[in-house]
Protein backbone atom coordinates (compact mmCIF):
# COMPACT_ATOMS: atom_id res chain seq x y z
CA UNK A 1 0.00 0.00 0.00
CA UNK A 2 2.91 2.32 0.63
CA UNK A 3 3.90 1.82 -2.98
CA UNK A 4 0.63 3.28 -4.21
CA UNK A 5 1.12 6.38 -2.11
CA UNK A 6 4.74 6.71 -3.17
CA UNK A 7 4.00 6.47 -6.87
CA UNK A 8 1.05 8.83 -6.61
CA UNK A 9 3.12 11.44 -4.77
CA UNK A 10 6.10 10.94 -7.07
CA UNK A 11 4.00 11.44 -10.19
CA UNK A 12 2.42 14.47 -8.56
CA UNK A 13 5.81 15.92 -7.71
CA UNK A 14 7.24 15.43 -11.18
CA UNK A 15 4.13 16.75 -12.89
CA UNK A 16 3.91 19.78 -10.63
CA UNK A 17 7.59 20.69 -11.02
CA UNK A 18 7.41 20.35 -14.80
CA UNK A 19 4.28 22.48 -14.89
CA UNK A 20 5.93 24.96 -12.53
CA UNK A 21 8.86 25.47 -14.84
CA UNK A 22 7.19 25.36 -18.21
CA UNK A 23 3.81 27.06 -17.77
CA UNK A 24 3.48 30.24 -19.81
CA UNK A 25 2.41 32.45 -16.91
CA UNK A 26 4.60 32.99 -13.88
CA UNK A 27 1.59 33.15 -11.58
CA UNK A 28 0.59 29.62 -12.57
CA UNK A 29 4.19 28.53 -12.11
CA UNK A 30 4.11 29.67 -8.51
CA UNK A 31 0.82 27.83 -7.97
CA UNK A 32 2.25 24.62 -9.34
CA UNK A 33 5.33 25.09 -7.20
CA UNK A 34 3.02 25.12 -4.20
CA UNK A 35 1.53 21.86 -5.45
CA UNK A 36 5.01 20.37 -5.71
CA UNK A 37 5.77 21.45 -2.14
CA UNK A 38 2.67 19.70 -0.91
CA UNK A 39 3.55 16.51 -2.77
CA UNK A 40 7.08 16.44 -1.41
CA UNK A 41 5.72 17.05 2.04
CA UNK A 42 3.53 13.97 1.59
CA UNK A 43 6.64 12.00 0.65
CA UNK A 44 8.31 13.25 3.84
CA UNK A 45 5.33 11.97 5.79
CA UNK A 46 5.80 8.58 4.14
CA UNK A 47 9.42 8.63 5.21
CA UNK A 48 8.47 9.39 8.78
CA UNK A 49 9.93 12.90 8.81
CA UNK A 50 6.85 14.62 10.14
CA UNK A 51 8.52 17.74 11.48
CA UNK A 52 10.22 18.55 8.21
CA UNK A 53 7.03 17.85 6.27
CA UNK A 54 5.12 20.50 8.19
CA UNK A 55 8.03 22.91 8.31
CA UNK A 56 8.32 22.57 4.54
CA UNK A 57 4.69 23.56 4.12
CA UNK A 58 4.83 26.38 6.67
CA UNK A 59 8.10 27.85 5.45
CA UNK A 60 8.06 27.21 1.73
CA UNK A 61 4.39 27.64 1.00
CA UNK A 62 3.74 30.19 3.69
CA UNK A 63 6.83 32.31 3.23
CA UNK A 64 8.71 31.63 0.02
CA UNK A 65 5.84 31.08 -2.41
CA UNK A 66 3.92 33.93 -0.84
CA UNK A 67 6.97 36.16 -1.28
CA UNK A 68 7.03 35.20 -4.95
CA UNK A 69 3.36 36.08 -5.28
CA UNK A 70 3.83 39.41 -3.51
CA UNK A 71 6.73 40.30 -5.78
CA UNK A 72 4.77 39.30 -8.86
CA UNK A 73 1.83 41.45 -7.84
CA UNK A 74 4.09 44.37 -6.93
CA UNK A 75 6.11 44.34 -10.11
CA UNK A 76 3.11 44.16 -12.42
CA UNK A 77 5.01 42.03 -14.93
CA UNK A 78 3.67 39.12 -16.92
CA UNK A 79 0.31 38.90 -15.26
CA UNK A 80 -2.20 37.18 -17.46
CA UNK A 81 -3.93 39.60 -19.78
CA UNK A 82 -7.36 38.05 -19.80
CA UNK A 83 -7.74 37.90 -16.06
CA UNK A 84 -6.57 35.12 -13.83
CA UNK A 85 -6.98 31.64 -15.22
CA UNK A 86 -9.34 29.31 -13.49
CA UNK A 87 -7.78 26.08 -14.59
CA UNK A 88 -4.48 25.78 -12.62
CA UNK A 89 -6.00 26.38 -9.18
CA UNK A 90 -8.69 23.81 -9.98
CA UNK A 91 -6.07 21.31 -11.15
CA UNK A 92 -3.92 21.74 -8.05
CA UNK A 93 -6.87 21.70 -5.70
CA UNK A 94 -8.30 18.58 -7.29
CA UNK A 95 -4.93 16.83 -7.20
CA UNK A 96 -4.42 17.59 -3.52
CA UNK A 97 -7.97 16.56 -2.72
CA UNK A 98 -7.55 13.19 -4.47
CA UNK A 99 -4.25 12.61 -2.67
CA UNK A 100 -5.81 13.42 0.66
CA UNK A 101 -8.61 10.98 -0.09
CA UNK A 102 -6.15 8.21 -0.92
CA UNK A 103 -4.21 8.98 2.25
CA UNK A 104 -7.39 8.72 4.28
CA UNK A 105 -8.44 5.45 2.63
CA UNK A 106 -5.06 3.79 3.00
CA UNK A 107 -4.34 5.15 6.44
CA UNK A 108 -4.55 1.85 8.27
CA UNK A 109 -2.16 0.10 5.97
CA UNK A 110 0.69 2.57 5.71
CA UNK A 111 3.82 1.87 7.63
CA UNK A 112 6.42 4.61 7.99
CA UNK A 113 9.82 3.56 6.85
CA UNK A 114 11.98 5.11 9.52
CA UNK A 115 10.84 5.55 13.12
CA UNK A 116 11.88 2.53 15.01
CA UNK A 117 12.52 4.66 18.04
CA UNK A 118 10.01 5.10 20.79
CA UNK A 119 10.06 8.89 20.73
CA UNK A 120 8.48 11.07 18.08
CA UNK A 121 10.33 12.49 15.14
CA UNK A 122 10.23 16.04 16.47
CA UNK A 123 11.61 14.98 19.82
CA UNK A 124 14.46 13.01 18.25
CA UNK A 125 15.27 15.84 15.84
CA UNK A 126 15.30 18.34 18.65
CA UNK A 127 17.67 16.22 20.67
CA UNK A 128 20.11 15.89 17.78
CA UNK A 129 19.77 19.55 16.85
CA UNK A 130 20.31 21.00 20.30
CA UNK A 131 23.10 18.71 21.38
CA UNK A 132 25.32 18.29 18.36
CA UNK A 133 24.28 21.12 16.07
CA UNK A 134 23.69 24.04 18.38
CA UNK A 135 26.33 26.31 16.84
CA UNK A 136 25.28 25.70 13.22
CA UNK A 137 21.73 26.39 14.36
CA UNK A 138 22.74 29.75 15.79
CA UNK A 139 24.76 30.54 12.68
CA UNK A 140 21.65 29.86 10.61
CA UNK A 141 19.86 32.49 12.65
CA UNK A 142 22.68 34.94 11.90
CA UNK A 143 22.41 34.09 8.19
CA UNK A 144 18.69 34.83 8.22
CA UNK A 145 19.29 38.11 10.04
CA UNK A 146 21.93 39.05 7.47
CA UNK A 147 19.54 38.24 4.64
CA UNK A 148 16.89 40.42 6.22
CA UNK A 149 19.29 43.33 6.68
CA UNK A 150 20.53 42.93 3.09
CA UNK A 151 17.00 42.86 1.70
CA UNK A 152 16.01 45.98 3.60
CA UNK A 153 19.27 47.75 2.84
CA UNK A 154 19.11 47.03 -0.87
CA UNK A 155 15.62 48.39 -1.25
CA UNK A 156 16.11 51.42 0.99
CA UNK A 157 15.87 54.67 -0.92
CA UNK A 158 17.20 57.77 0.68
CA UNK A 159 14.90 60.41 -0.71
CA UNK A 160 11.76 58.39 -0.46
CA UNK A 161 9.27 58.88 2.32
CA UNK A 162 9.28 55.74 4.36
CA UNK A 163 6.68 55.04 6.93
CA UNK A 164 8.12 55.31 10.39
CA UNK A 165 6.89 54.51 13.81
CA UNK A 166 8.24 57.49 15.75
CA UNK A 167 5.36 59.90 15.42
CA UNK A 168 2.89 57.30 16.47
CA UNK A 169 4.76 56.37 19.59
CA UNK A 170 5.33 59.99 20.54
CA UNK A 171 1.65 60.50 21.20
CA UNK A 172 0.77 60.11 24.85
CA UNK A 173 -2.58 59.49 26.39
CA UNK A 174 -2.65 63.02 27.83
CA UNK A 175 -2.40 64.50 24.33
CA UNK A 176 -5.68 63.07 23.27
CA UNK A 177 -7.63 62.52 26.42
CA UNK A 178 -8.88 65.14 28.89
CA UNK A 179 -10.71 64.30 32.05
CA UNK A 180 -13.31 66.82 33.11
CA UNK A 181 -15.88 66.99 35.79
CA UNK A 182 -18.85 68.86 34.25
CA UNK A 183 -21.39 70.67 36.34
CA UNK A 184 -24.87 69.36 36.45
CA UNK A 185 -27.13 70.44 33.64
CA UNK A 186 -24.47 72.49 31.87
CA UNK A 187 -22.49 70.06 29.83
CA UNK A 188 -19.02 70.61 28.50
CA UNK A 189 -17.85 73.72 26.68
CA UNK A 190 -14.89 73.21 24.46
Amino acid sequence: MTEILFYMLAVGTIGCTMAALFMPQVMESVLFLIGAFFNVSGLFLLLGAEFLAFVLIILNVGAVALLFLFILMTLNVSITKGGFYKKPPMVIGGLLLIEMGVFLILKEHTVPVLVKTTQSNTHALGEVLYTHYIFPFQIMGVILLTAMIIAVGLLWEKGRRHKRQEHQSDVKASDRLTLTNPERGKGIKR
Binding site: L52, L59, A63, V64, L67, A147
Partner: peptide, 14 residues
Amino acid sequence: SLFVLGVGAAEVAV
Protein backbone atom coordinates in the same frame (compact mmCIF):
# COMPACT_ATOMS: atom_id res chain seq x y z
CA SER B 1 17.72 19.59 5.48
CA LEU B 2 16.60 22.08 8.10
CA PHE B 3 19.75 24.14 7.52
CA VAL B 4 19.22 24.00 3.76
CA LEU B 5 15.69 25.28 4.36
CA GLY B 6 17.01 28.32 6.22
CA VAL B 7 19.67 29.10 3.66
CA GLY B 8 17.11 28.71 0.87
CA ALA B 9 14.79 31.20 2.53
CA ALA B 10 17.65 33.68 2.87
CA GLU B 11 18.59 33.17 -0.77
CA VAL B 12 15.06 33.78 -1.97
CA ALA B 13 14.77 36.95 0.10
CA VAL B 14 18.01 38.40 -1.25
